[in-house]
Design a protein around this nucleic acid. Structure first.
Lengths: 212, 212
DNA sequence: AACTATACGGAATCCGAGTTCCGTTTGCAA
DNA sequence: TTGCAAACGGAACTCGGATTCCGTATAGTT
């Protein structure tokens, strides 16, 4: 045996998880499915149908199910990816020079990815399990906590805010972000800024930055 | 013929809508169905099932369908009622002595009825047609417009707000109001107040009322 | 009291969306 | 080149929930 790429069936380290080498076509198809699902769910929301995912991925339904035993699993996989992006942005915000702007940018970003992905909006709105799970996995709670804490220290964020308020705000924004909001379609960035204004400490000015 | 309560099949005024006298049991059952549906949809959301509505109303499924040909129709009927309540509150706000408080109360109220009715939240979140339709019917756009206008005149509402922002805010609140928000459950009143703070004109204090 | 249009109940049906199954194809190690 | 486990495709199936159908019951009238 001279494995070109990886080891074979591998005798399984301890108990569970047996890693196995995937055939090239399998890997390729998996990617295709993910890409298709990403597009479909983003465009049509969680109601997009599995057979359509297969169609877009140019693959049979069976193949979709081989890679993701359940629609739920597929959704969860996509959600995980989005939450990873969110976490990344949060870290970025924490590392930012300006703590307040770091927080604001995170909030704006969370609105934006939802505006770009109807599926994500729906996960946040009606799949608490998936959302909590994904959020936990990437450590969002701690990240939000740090974000809030740092901003508060800087004095530009109201003292009574707690980290749980951040995901709550993000969820709320996910509701007004999709494009069937009747008369208010596309006006969501206004609300983002309004909320941000509401986050300032009582009596603080809303005018631009401080001097450096 | 001596109609005890109403007129008979009535020759139909012009074209469509033929009013007919309902039998007493029919009227009674209709109310029972509405009551049951109100409770079920409020508790379980729009996924509540028609047969269950029938069960709770102590009526056969057929009866439910005789009164509401479609689940959609039933939902729309309930929504209409809720929106009527909203409109009422809006009028109240417009009539209020304090324009700013009138607006705030309306916003708080819209959050509260959604907190009390998961079905309504879902209508606002994923039934744009039903929502727009109901809103139009009760004249909410005009009411919001007046609410905003009056509050702005009083100088306590930021000038850049437009009436479309009010329903948008209401929708957003409907997302965080239900009770499966993970860590943030029950904290929604905080967000309401944060948003309200954000609605104040730039630089204004958040502290209590002005003097009379 | 008899009559009949109106209502009723709820088993049966319809339907759509997720999921399974299995015969066929294919990557890749020998 | 061969052999076969790993993958594939997609028709067929399952299942849950809305909706229909029709024989029976009854309010209201004569």
């Amino acid at each position: 045996m001279t494995p070109v790429t990886e080891t074979k069936p591998r005798p399984a380290g301890k108990t569970a998880v047996v890693e196995r080498v995937q055939r090239a076509d399998a890997r390729r198809n998996r990617e295709a499915v993910i890409a298709a699902a990403k597009k479909l769910f983003a465009d049509e929301g969680l109601d997009a149908q599995m057979p359509d995912v297969a169609k877009v991925a140019k693959v049979g339904v069976g193949t979709v199910y081989r890679h993701f035993p359940t629609k739920q699993d597929l959704i969860a996989a996509l959600a995980a990816e989005r939450f990873e992006r969110l976490a990344e942005k949060a870290r970025e915000g924490i590392a930012a020079e300006d703590p307040w702007e770091g927080l604001c940018d995170f909030i704006r970003f969370s609105a934006q990815i939802q505006a770009d992905d109807r599926g994500l909006c729906e996960v946040m709105g009606s799949r608490p399990e998936v959302m909590n799970d994904s959020a936990l996995t990437v450590g969002l709670p701690e990240l939000c906590d740090q974000l809030v804490d740092r901003a508060q220290r800087s004095g530009r964020l109201r003292k009574d805010l707690e980290w749980e308020d951040i995901p709550m705000i993000a969820c709320g924004l996910g509701r007004i972000t999709p494009s069937e909001m009747g008369p208010a379609t596309g006006r969501w960035p206004r609300l983002v800024e309004i909320i941000i204004d509401g986050l300032r400490p009582p009596g603080s000015s809303k005018l631009p930055k401080p001097l450096v």
